[in-house]
Structure formats: structure tokens, C-alpha cells
Computed example of a mutant assay.
Amino acid sequence: MVPGIHPDDAHLAALLAQRGIEPVACIWNDPEVDWTAFDAVLMRSTWDYFKHYTAFCAWLERLPIPTINPGSLLRWNSDKRYLAELAALGVDIIPTTFTSASDLAGTLALTPGQEVVVKPTVSGTAWHTARGVVGEPAFEQTIAALPSAFQYLVQPFVPEVVSGGEWSLLFFDGNFSHAVIKRPAVGDYRVQSEFGGTAQRVEPPAALVESAGRALAAMATLGYTDIAYARVDGVLTRRGFLLMELEMIEPFLHLAVAPDAAERFAGQLWKRLAAGLPECRPV
């Protein structure tokens, strides 16, 4: 959890204030917060929710005000087993197997010698994530030490994450806004800044935007149509764009490198809030 307004959101907050919307940063699990004093919640840097998942879901259930991105969407997006639903609808994802902790060793044994990535289905920032070659003692030791309470996903390691980087495409109200390529530090595969990863704004090919858009369009089939903001993460391979995950709870929006995007998002938030709320003071 990052208290206060994160620097990447600072310009967005200032733009909202200019439009008469008072942004107030609150910590989601602070018992002293009176949520009824606000009109809506805009999730931003709740980057610890997966560590307190049961409490977070309970908080969403009892929250007395709406969230920007509806609560049902946030709950669906919080567990990466949604990838199976999207794959069933024809979305190209990294091949993924889901398994319980008790069956994890057996699942891995089906692919001896393969380099894989294992992580909880509810996670973030490479939390409890392991990469290694199935059958190698060091990797087997790492897998044995993973928490037993979680569900896990197993994916083949995609080398293009290192060689070409991971794409993040940002959409506001279903419209493409901007994109970045995230690259890991030398010798690593994790693209998060906590591990030395970097991000650079780039103009994606039209086909890449279309692929990302199809992933969001598939969600309409599942009944999720009111998506105020979304980040589509994936990697370009010889098979084309493969979806890694959708981020619609608290994605880092890369607004510091895209001030024009912050202006678009602020305008769309103002319209959304003004249409339903006469006096808007979103968190």
C-alpha cells in the first residue's frame, strides 16, 4: 500500500481538482475512514490487497459507495483464473495451467526439463513467484517452500519478455490511450521497478492495439462492459500478442510519461462522475 497520492498520479489529481473534484487519498483498510463522506472510490495504489485478500474482498462487499470500475469487475479481476475464461472465448494467452498447492508438484512433473514460471492466482509484483527448470533441485526446493494455502498458475517461461520486453497498453472507457514497453534489469526477468525494471513510452503497431482491444471486448461476453480504466499486459511472440494479464484494480497507469493521457482520463472521470453524482468528491 502506498499512502497518499503516488507521484505517477499527481498530475491526474491536480487535473481532477481543477475540474472541481476533490481527490482525497485514503488507505483501504484504515478503520478510521468514513467512506460515507465520499461519493466514489477510485482504486490507485492498493498494492497490498493480494496479501490481505479475504479482508479486501470483505471490504469491497461492505463499501457503502460505488467504485470506479464496479466492485464485481474488481473481484473478477483479482484472481488470474479469469485467464481461462478469456482463453475459452478465443483470447490468445500464454498457455496456463491452474492447480492447487497440493497438486503443484504433480502438475510440474508433467513437463520435465521445461523452464516455467509459477505464481499464485491472486498476486502482484512477482509475489511468491518462482522461475526455474522443472526437475532441477534448486527449483524443486523453491516450489516446496511456496505457501500451501494458495491456488497457483503454471506457465512456460516466455523468453521474449527478456529479449523484447513486456507491453502494457492503457485503455480509458474502452478507448486506447497510450502504451509502454517494460524491460527487466540485466539478468532478471521481472519487469517491475522494484527489481530494476524500466518502462518507456512507445507507439504500438495497430495490430497490437487491436489484439489488446479484443481481450477487453471478450469481457463484454462475460457481462463486464463498464470498464473505466484497464491495462492490458502481454508479450509479442512468433505466435503474435499473448495476453499475460489484465489490470483493472490498481494498475500503474504510466501517467508521468503521458501527461496527455492524464488529461484524457481526468476528463472522462469528470464526465462519468458528473453524470451520476451532482457533487463529486471521489477518493
Rank of each mutant, 00 (worst) to 15 (best):
residue 277 L to T: 13
residue 198 T to Q: 15
residue 280 C to T: 13
residue 129 T to H: 01
residue 100 S to T: 11
residue 63 L to D: 10
residue 7 P to G: 14
residue 218 A to R: 05
residue 264 R to K: 09
residue 70 P to I: 00
residue 141 Q to I: 00
residue 168 S to V: 01
residue 82 Y to S: 07
residue 116 V to P: 10
residue 78 S to D: 06
residue 273 L to E: 03
residue 91 V to P: 13
residue 27 I to P: 03
residue 164 G to E: 11
residue 273 L to G: 05
residue 212 A to C: 15
residue 41 V to S: 04
residue 243 L to D: 00
residue 108 L to I: 03
residue 269 L to N: 12
residue 137 P to I: 00
residue 213 G to V: 01
residue 156 P to T: 01
residue 125 T to D: 15
residue 162 V to T: 14
residue 274 A to K: 14
residue 88 A to G: 07
residue 75 R to A: 10
residue 139 F to N: 10
residue 51 K to R: 14
residue 18 Q to E: 15
residue 45 S to Y: 02
residue 150 F to R: 01
residue 276 G to E: 15
residue 48 D to A: 12
residue 166 E to P: 07
residue 129 T to L: 11
residue 152 Y to D: 01
residue 155 Q to E: 07
residue 94 I to T: 14
residue 219 M to G: 07
residue 216 L to E: 02
residue 283 V to P: 02
residue 235 V to H: 03
residue 268 Q to V: 00
residue 74 L to P: 11
residue 148 S to H: 07
residue 90 G to K: 00
residue 38 F to Y: 15
residue 93 I to A: 08
residue 50 F to P: 03
residue 38 F to L: 04
residue 270 W to E: 12
residue 197 G to I: 01
residue 15 L to V: 13
residue 66 P to L: 02
residue 35 W to R: 05
residue 282 P to T: 06
residue 136 E to R: 12
residue 152 Y to L: 01
residue 124 G to R: 02
residue 120 P to M: 01
residue 276 G to F: 09
residue 152 Y to R: 03
residue 135 G to F: 08
residue 170 L to G: 00
residue 218 A to Y: 08
residue 117 V to Q: 14
residue 231 R to S: 10
residue 63 L to A: 04
residue 25 A to I: 01
residue 251 P to F: 04
residue 146 L to S: 07
residue 275 A to I: 01
residue 92 D to C: 04
residue 28 W to H: 04
residue 30 D to S: 05
residue 4 G to Y: 14
residue 66 P to T: 04
residue 261 A to C: 11
residue 253 L to Y: 06
residue 162 V to Y: 03
residue 170 L to A: 11
residue 82 Y to N: 09
residue 131 R to G: 08
residue 211 S to H: 10
residue 56 F to W: 14
residue 46 T to W: 01
residue 218 A to C: 09
residue 65 I to Y: 07
residue 163 S to R: 07
residue 46 T to L: 05
residue 118 V to S: 12
residue 8 D to M: 06
residue 34 D to H: 09
residue 251 P to E: 05
residue 255 L to T: 04
residue 245 E to A: 03
residue 58 A to P: 02
residue 243 L to V: 06
residue 82 Y to T: 05
residue 143 I to W: 12
residue 71 G to L: 00
residue 278 P to F: 04
residue 83 L to M: 09
residue 155 Q to G: 10
residue 2 V to T: 13
residue 62 R to Q: 14
residue 126 A to D: 12
residue 253 L to M: 05
residue 203 E to N: 12
residue 100 S to I: 00
residue 126 A to K: 06
residue 201 R to Q: 15
residue 146 L to M: 07
residue 185 A to Q: 08
residue 274 A to T: 15
residue 176 F to T: 03
residue 185 A to V: 02
residue 96 T to E: 07
residue 29 N to S: 14
residue 180 V to R: 06
residue 232 V to W: 03
residue 13 A to E: 03
residue 152 Y to P: 00
residue 132 G to C: 05
residue 4 G to N: 12
residue 123 S to C: 05
residue 15 L to H: 15
residue 158 V to M: 10
residue 27 I to F: 10
residue 153 L to Q: 04
residue 137 P to Q: 09
residue 169 L to F: 02
residue 261 A to P: 13
